[in-house]
Design a protein around this nucleic acid. Sequence first.
DNA 1: TGAGGATACCTCGAACCAAAAGGTATAACA
DNA 2: TGTTATACCTTTTGGTTCGAGGTATCCTCA
Lengths: 112, 112
Amino acid sequence: MAKSNPPFMSGVPELLLLRLLQTREMYGYELVRSIREVTGEAISLGEGVIYPVLHSLERNGSLKSKRKPVGGRTRVYYALTRKGRDRLAKLQGDWHRIQTGIATALESPGHA
Amino acid sequence: MAKSNPPFMSGVPELLLLRLLQTREMYGYELVRSIREVTGEAISLGEGVIYPVLHSLERNGSLKSKRKPVGGRTRVYYALTRKGRDRLAKLQGDWHRIQTGIATALESPGHA
DNA sequence: TGAGGATACCTCGAACCAAAAGGTATAACA
DNA sequence: TGTTATACCTTTTGGTTCGAGGTATCCTCA
């Protein structure tokens, strides 16, 4: 029954979403393309990843959403809350830590 | 049935192991502590992660092992093969790509 | 001597996340 | 009218990592 910790490098999709929403409100479909773009095609997350993360972030209060009809379609725009900003700061710290750790490991001595 | 790709940032344990073994031969238990050390405590992988990865790397020819009795215990030392060096190069490239992608995303405009 | 901790190997089950594919519906374009 | 693009969503599958458990030897120290 022991609840295991999340895998040590998870939470990157969440991090990217929160970071993008820090700049401005965006909707799901837009975020999918945006992530591919801002990461220089290095990371491509499908809708099957984005939407569930968005929903869980909203459930836990990191995001708030509002629906906007545009043309005949409806867009759901997401914005950061206070809690979301805190969450973003935490994830950025986590990421920085492991990224630095890996860099250290890779650069260290002998490429003998 | 469609075979899904491995998660976009997996393979880091594998990368770290290969990198450490590039410098010198090491045995499993040693690698567990070494990873914690060289990453500045940022990453800590248990034996439940290390041993299976070691075994699968050996099966696919990236590592070769030899047993050495030391005191009354037996250590299994692992060394890189040619294929292991190629694999390491590939994983380093992959890692560099996504690491750069994320850095770009995080640094980009407005910390408004 | 015997209890406990460190060393050293290993495996199994559960948890968790992301991939892919599928499903609905409207708009635009050819 | 059919195909592509927009826009939302969920479910199934698959792979990786986590945690805990299991065996055995050695060393320390009461």
